[in-house]
Every structure is written in structure tokens, then in C-alpha cells.
């Protein structure tokens, strides 16, 4: 009825906006600027040398590879879990639903040592895997596992609302039109939740690339083998090589921005699809 409200009758815009902007600048933007400036002030050749150092390259490969793998695992299992939670009623569903958020709330160091304990050679699950010849702790597999744990809620929590939105009617309509369950899934459900799935994937991946606490306990931290990029930054800092740390930090920051951008684009795409679908 009313075209769109102008909100100006409520008081407090000046003070809240001012405080928000100030705090944002002081806590987030100023420090990030310091990092970028530090990177920019470096000699280009030195910058390139630092960020393309074999040890650095190996760490990127590891960080990216494990994050990608973990996000892919979450794409599948996250979807299955979201589906199970949305579509099925079973005892303990509410507890399961609540515990999905555990990685958000659990300190990373705790999940790190706990995972290591469970999956190390004498851990509850690790000892069985050991018998099968699978080593988890102190290998890239362990890193992937930790990142899977960290990324899981991102996928589940983005896909869940999309699945809820997609009413069962749509699927039933597809079935009455003669689509088999597989066909209905591929043609109806998957396209509808695809933007959410990809957003969840990107969120999980972005989080995984930067993750530190839960990884370092299970990683083993062997240079060139199981050394992730954030750890390399810490090591450079401990060597008081601030410039190298800053250069690597800039690379990480650039990746963060790229991920943020693609997540925003994915979400915008999802919203557009939703709006288009509602018309």
C-alpha cells in the first residue's frame, strides 16, 4: 500500500551510523589497511619471491586442496543432512538440528585436539582406520577432516532454508506430471537449491582456507607436506620476518575478498532466482 517507507521519523540515525562507521574503521578497516600498505610498500621482486617460495606454494596447494575437498564433502553430506532435517521426522531430530551449529560455538583449539584424539592411531576411530591402513592424523586427510568439521554448518544452514522454501508440493507436482523420484530430484529440487548449495560451498571453502586452530593439531605441520598457509604466516612472524608475513597475509586477504565477492554474487543470484520464481 505505502510505496516504500522513508524511515526518517525514527531518531538515532546520526549517532548509530557514526558509531558504527567509527568502530568499523578503527577495528577492521584501519588494521587491514596497515596490512595492505605493508604489502604494497615491499619491493615487488621480494614480494614475488616470498609469495612464490616453494614452501609457500606447497602451503597454498595444501590449503586450497584440502579446503576444496572438505567443501565438496560438505556439499554432499551437508545436503543430505539438511534434507534429512527438513523432510524427515525422527527421534532426536531437534538435538541433531541444534548440534549442527557446534562448530560455530566450539573453540577451534578444542575441536582440533578432540579430532586428533579421535582419529590418531590410538583414537576411537583412528585405531580402526589404522587397521585398514588409513592414516588420518598428521596427514592431509586429517586436515581435510578438520576443515570438513569447520565447514559443515555453513552448508547445512544455507541449504536448509532453501529446502524449506521449496515446498513438497513442487516435488509432488513434478511426480504427478510423471517425473520419477530421480528425475524430480535432478530437474526440480537440485536447480532450486543450487544457489544455496554453491553459496554454502563457497562459505565453507572460504572458512577452510583461513582456518588455523582446528588444523594445526591434526596437521603434523611438516614443511612442504602438511603445513597450511596460515601456519606459514605464524612461522614467519615467529622468525620476526614481518615483511614475509605481511606478503603472505596480503595473499590470504586477497583470497578472502575474492571469496566474499563470489559469495555475494551467488547470494544475489539465489535471491533473483527466488524472486523470479515467485512471479
Amino acid at each position: 500500500m505505502t510505496p516504500r517507507r522513508s524511515h526518517s521519523v525514527l531518531p538515532g540515525f546520526g549517532i548509530t551510523f557514526g558509531f558504527t562507521a567509527f568502530f568499523l574503521c578503527a577495528i577492521v578497516l584501519l588494521p587491514l589497511t596497515a596490512l595492505v600498505m605493508r604489502g604494497a610498500s615491499m619491493d615487488l621482486a621480494r614480494f614475488v619471491e616470498v609469495v612464490t617460495d616453494p614452501r609457500a606454494l606447497a602451503s597454498y596447494r595444501l590449503s586450497f586442496g584440502t579446503s576444496m575437498l572438505a567443501a565438496a564433502i560438505n556439499l554432499v553430506f551437508g545436503f543430505v543432512i539438511a534434507w534429512t532435517l527438513v523432510r524427515y521426522r525422527f527421534p532426536g531430530r531437534r538435538i541433531v538440528d541444534a548440534i549442527i551449529d557446534m562448530p560455530f560455538a566450539l573453540p577451534t583449539a578444542v575441536s582440533g585436539i578432540a579430532l586428533t584424539a579421535v582419529f590418531s592411531a590410538n583414537g576411537w576411530i583412528g585405531e580402526h582406520l589404522e587397521k585398514l591402513g588409513i592414516k588420518v592424523a598428521y596427514t592431509p586427510l586429517g586436515i581435510t577432516l578438520a576443515l570438513t568439521l569447520i565447514g559443515l554448518p555453513f552448508v547445512v544452514r544455507t541449504v536448509q532454508p532453501a529446502l524449506q522454501e521449496l515446498s513438497k508440493d513442487v516435488e509432488e507436482a513434478a511426480e504427478t506430471l510423471g517425473a520419477g523420484p530421480f528425475h524430480a530430484f535432478r530437474r526440480v529440487i537440485l536447480p532450486a537449491v543450487l544457489p544455496a548449495l554453491l553459496t554454502g560451498f563457497a562459505l565453507a571453502f572460504a572458512r577452510g582456507v583461513g582456518e588455523y586452530g582446528s588444523v594445526i593439531f591434526i596437521a603434523g605441520n611438516m614443511p612442504g607436506l602438511t603445513e597450511i598457509t596460515p601456519l606459514l604466516i605464524v612461522i614467519r612472524l615467529e622468525e620476526y620476518d614481518y615483511a614475509a608475513a605481511a606478503a603472505l597475509g596480503c595473499v590470504m586477504l586477497a583470497i578472502s575478498f575474492l571469496m566474499l565477492l563470489s559469495i555475494n554474487l551467488l547470494q544475489a543470484w539465489g535471491r533473483r532466482r527466488l524472486v523470479a520464481a515467485r512471479r
Binding site: L32, L35, G210, I233, Y242, A246, G249, M252, S256
Partner: peptide, 16 residues
């Protein structure tokens, strides 16, 4: 933004 930044980088910026 801070959600997308690696915690290590978050610490690093203050060191710098």
C-alpha cells in the same frame, strides 16, 4: 568482512 578473513591474518594486522 572479519568472518572471511583468516584468524591468523586478523592477528597479523595488529602486529603490523
Amino acid at each position: 568482512l572479519p568472518l572471511a578473513v583468516s584468524p591468523v591474518v586478523s592477528g597479523l594486522v595488529y602486529v603490523l
